[in-house]
């Protein structure tokens, strides 16, 4: 019997091989076209990045005399030093706003997601639909009243004003993302924890949170990247003293007389944390966005 199966298998393998040996000519041509297009796109996307990296390591005078894509003849960190002078404080501001803003929105989103996915109450679905709708709200639509509110709270040109705004406006997205994860926590686990003597909050703290750490990390990373890259709130609410790095970078481009090496160095400094996050957390991020998307629908 086993021999039989073995023979069958080797026959199949042979057939597979014959297919490989005789490729059809139009398939080959098609492959060449595919690869050509893919390489063209790759070059198109990578060339500016390559140019940015090369320029950032050049001296200002070499920038003037060479094309952006040629490697520097003399490697220097001059550009980075000048960029850091301008970006130092704004980077700190960005860091604080990002960490606290992301933490705030993840916390609020997590609590909302828990309540919406695991507890039945009146208008449960209405709340959820309202939250989903809120994620589609264009921020410029509410910019003026928001500015007035922040002014009235005396939080204009204040790091904590930005933290507050990001916490609140990030919350709907966090809720939608985390609700998908929490829905996967079996209801029996919640009931069991109730019977074991725990109330709603204790269950959240002891059962739901520890079993959905990946959801929390994913959502946190997602929020971090979007707050770090954010410019609109930063521009309108950041003022002068607490402007985040995105604004400072923009000013770097505008005020300096075409010091491209400094601008490119600044861009890379700003991009670095997000790149690092994506490299280490990309796996979680992709699965997280997928799960949120599927379960929310």
């Amino acid at each position: 019997m086993q021999n039989h199966v073995g023979i069958e298998r080797s026959r199949e393998a042979q057939q597979a091989q014959t297919v490989k040996i005789r490729p059809r000519w139009h398939m080959t041509v098609l492959h060449i076209v595919y690869y050509f297009i893919m390489v063209a796109f790759l070059v198109f996307y990578m060339l500016p990045f390559w140019g940015t990296v090369m320029t950032s390591f050049k001296t200002n005078s070499e920038v003037m005399t060479s094309t952006p894509i040629t490697p520097p003849t003399e490697w220097t960190l001059e550009g980075y030093a000048s960029a850091m002078e301008e970006l130092g404080m704004p980077l700190m501001t960005s860091l604080v706003v990002t960490i606290f803003g992301a933490a705030g929105s993840v916390f609020l989103g997590s609590v909302c997601a828990y309540a919406l996915s695991k507890w039945r109450f009146k208008l449960n679905n209405v709340f959820f639909i309202a939250l989903v709708a809120a994620t589609y709200l264009p921020f410029q639509a509410i910019l003026i009243p928001l500015l007035q509110t922040i002014n009235a709270l005396n939080l204009y040109d204040n790091v904590w004003g930005l933290v507050l705004v990001h916490s609140v406006f990030g919350m709907p997205m966090c809720t939608v993302m985390m609700r998908g994860y929490y829905a996967d926590v079996p209801d029996a686990l919640i009931r069991q924890a109730m019977i074991d003597g725990n109330g709603m909050w204790a269950i959240y703290r002891k059962i739901v949170l520890p079993n959905t750490m990946i959801a929390t990390i994913t959502t946190f990373v997602f929020q971090c990247t979007s707050i770090w890259n954010e410019m609109l709130f930063a521009l309108v609410l950041g003022g002068y003293d607490s402007k985040p790095a995105t604004i400072a970078l923009n000013e770097l481009a505008g005020t300096m007389a075409a010091e491209f090496n400094v601008q490119m160095a600044g861009s890379l400094i700003l991009a670095l944390p997000v790149l690092v996050l994506y490299i280490f957390m990309g796996k979680y991020l992709i699965s997280g966005q997928m799960s949120g998307a599927v379960t929310a629908s």
Partner: peptide
Amino acid sequence: FQEYALYP
């Protein structure tokens, strides 16, 4: 419970 519901 039938599904045991042990805390993972």
